[in-house]
Simulated scan of single mutants.
Amino acid sequence: MDNDQLTLKMLMLLIRKSLPNADVKWACRRGHDAVARCLSAESRPDVLLVDMSLEGLSGVEVCRQIRAATADVALIGVTSFSLEHYAADALAAGAQCVMDKAQVADICDAAVALANGRTPRTRYVSDMTAAQSHALLAKRDDSDADDDSATRPAIAAAAVAPLTDREREVMRLCAQGRSSREIGELLGVGESSVKTYVMRAARKLSARNRTQAVAEWLMLQN
């Protein structure tokens, strides 16, 4: 799905050329339409490409709504803008990976991998399966619907459990207000590695971005 009609047609043409045996079920420009079609068994695709910079219902929110409802659709976030700008939010919303919209051949490879139960070989990829993401987001939605503050610490604790020691250390330093470069110097790793750790921690904390991840982390320390 894409909000630009010309880009949408070009993507469909290139995908059909690269994957002649694939069945491109449908394409749409509005997020609400994509969510509705993915929640219907009759129109649900195996893989959905989601433009990150949609108007109205954002691409990140499209991913979140679909993933909270089902694990049966593989979600690939695509954008012509900075991947780093969208990666953490999209992966936290249940996308399996985020890719450059112009790299159609790589996107097709990722779609084939996901459709066959494999992890795509790309830079920004989730370390959780669709089923794990679905369980986490569905649980969070249920908690929000119930508005039961007594259960939220337990749910948050369950979400933070998978964090690795390095991810915990990075979050501790983020909470101190240190930049990615400063954290990298302290830990002896590159700045890009720090951003990857933050992205993964945000995903596991069900946070949409670094700021929310730090807030969730601090809440868990109390």
Rank of each mutant, 00 (worst) to 15 (best):
S133R: 08
L136G: 01
S149E: 13
A90M: 10
R118P: 02
H85E: 11
A201L: 11
E182W: 02
L137V: 03
E185A: 15
Q103K: 12
P153K: 10
R181A: 14
G190L: 04
T129H: 09
G177F: 03
A95F: 11
A113K: 09
R166V: 13
V189T: 13
L205N: 07
V198C: 07
G117Q: 10
E169I: 10
Y86G: 00
S192I: 13
R140S: 03
A138R: 05
A111L: 07
A157M: 11
D144I: 07
V125G: 08
S192W: 04
M171A: 09
L187Q: 12
A207Y: 03
T164R: 10
V98M: 01
L186M: 15
L136R: 15
H134G: 03
C97D: 02
V170H: 03
A207L: 07
V104W: 01
D142L: 08
A90H: 08
R168C: 08
P162G: 12
A207M: 06
A150Y: 02
D147N: 13
Y197D: 15
M128C: 10
I107L: 06
S180W: 01
R203E: 15
R123F: 05
V98D: 02
R200W: 02
E191S: 13
N209R: 05
T122G: 03
G190K: 12
T129R: 04
D89T: 00
R168S: 11
L137M: 03
R140W: 10
A93S: 11
V112A: 05
D146T: 09
L173F: 06
R178N: 06
A150G: 05
D141W: 10
S143L: 14
Q103G: 00
A113D: 14
G117V: 10
L91N: 08
A131I: 11
I107M: 02
D89H: 08
C108Y: 04
I155L: 15
S192L: 09
R172I: 00
L136N: 06
R172L: 13
D147T: 01
P120C: 08
S149T: 09
Y124T: 02
T164L: 08
C108H: 07
E84A: 07
N209F: 01
A135W: 01
T122C: 15
K195E: 14
K204D: 12
D100I: 01
A115T: 06
T129I: 01
V160M: 15
R208V: 13
D142N: 05
L187A: 07
A93Y: 12
T129K: 06
T119H: 04
